[in-house]
Design a protein around this nucleic acid. Structure first.
Lengths: 191, 191
DNA sequence: CAAACTACAGACAGGTCTGTCTATATGTCA
DNA sequence: TGACATATAGACAGACCTGTCTGTAGTTTG
């Protein structure tokens, strides 16, 4: 999935990043930190050092850039997943997510923010974020099966809700988010 | 709390709502359904049937309207809380929230959406939403104490994370949100 | 060399946004 | 009746938004 935007993780070579990559590199943090509607195309192209015509040559509209960024963000998070070949791959997944959430730079989940900002579920950006979340649930369930847990579907769903709450709390509270009990809560939900 | 915006729940009398109330009545659903930045002042005043000068007479700026709406929304949700004099006031609280979340019209939590749309924590709207969430945690803890649970602080925090996840999931998935296991998860977190 | 592609800078159009302003009407109270 | 507060309608300014367009430069490819 989203292999097209992750096509050069192992082959950065030595040539400079393409205009398209520079645009995405510039847009990502801006969108993540300030929101999609708050950041205009002009800011993105200024940050990327790219001409406006170049931007619209690569992305027919701002919405296309947003969707491309969402897919790229999924690629990033997928690349940061812990291995699933240990004895407790689901527990490892949850622990890794909690570490990410507790990091200083974390501002919550960009997919949640997308859904909040584009409330219509048929908006391309919302739909893309929703698809990501479905795959998260599927991954949780897959790891629950690997971990030989009974009722893997239910376990995955419970943990999904908890993790969503963790992201929301980080967005709301920042570094002071009340996450002390998150690990304990996850243990109780795994059963 | 927020008694100033809830000053007429028992005394609607028979006089028509004031201009300020009509503005808030019109703005609330628009903000909730479409987002704060997506709804302009012109839309609000058209929906409220109010002149622009009247609007800016009651609210010095759009941000002031947003904060007023957040406080009013807290008043609404506080008024819908289940009584706390039963044997399990915390369990009742969680059950009531889950019922709200499962309702057809529910689009998630407006305070979460506020934090997502105004990422800066010192923005008045974000700060107001954050204050609401702090009070939610306090209320959960208060009910945990009433329910004579050990470690009420930890229980409140765990349940808070779960409920935040429920709101986020509703915003993301809509009526298809994966909430089947939410009640079971809450039971496990209460202990 | 020539053609094709891609990048650059930046003006521009058309629309929307917040917030201010003028001017008028209505209702209340002294 | 006269003064005042509050309502109305709507034009307006200034900023910002997305997306298009003109024109130029450099680089790759046949």
């Amino acid at each position: 999935m989203s292999s097209d935007v992750q096509n050069t993780p192992e082959a950065p070579a030595d040539r400079p990043p393409s205009a398209r990559e520079r645009i995405l590199d510039a847009a990502g943090p801006l969108f993540y930190r300030e929101g999609f509607r708050a950041v205009g195309v002009d800011r993105v192209i200024a940050e990327a050092g790219v001409a406006k015509a170049t931007f619209y040559n690569h992305f027919p509209s701002k919405d296309d850039l947003i969707v491309a960024w969402i897919e790229r963000a999924e690629g990033f998070s997928a690349a940061a997943l812990p291995p699933d070949d240990g004895p407790t791959p689901l527990t490892a997944y949850v622990a890794a997510m909690l570490d990410v959430a507790r990091a200083e730079r974390c501002l919550g989940c960009t997919f949640q923010n997308t859904a909040a900002e584009f409330s219509a579920r048929d908006h391309p950006a919302h739909a893309a974020a929703l698809a990501v979340k479905r795959r998260v649930i599927a991954e949780l369930e897959r790891r629950a099966v690997l971990q030989a847990l009974p009722e893997p579907k239910a376990v995955a769903q419970r943990l999904f809700l908890l993790l969503e709450g963790v992201w929301a709390a980080v967005r709301m509270f920042g570094p002071d988010a009340p996450l002390d009990t998150a690990r304990d809560a996850a243990r109780r939900l795994i059963g």
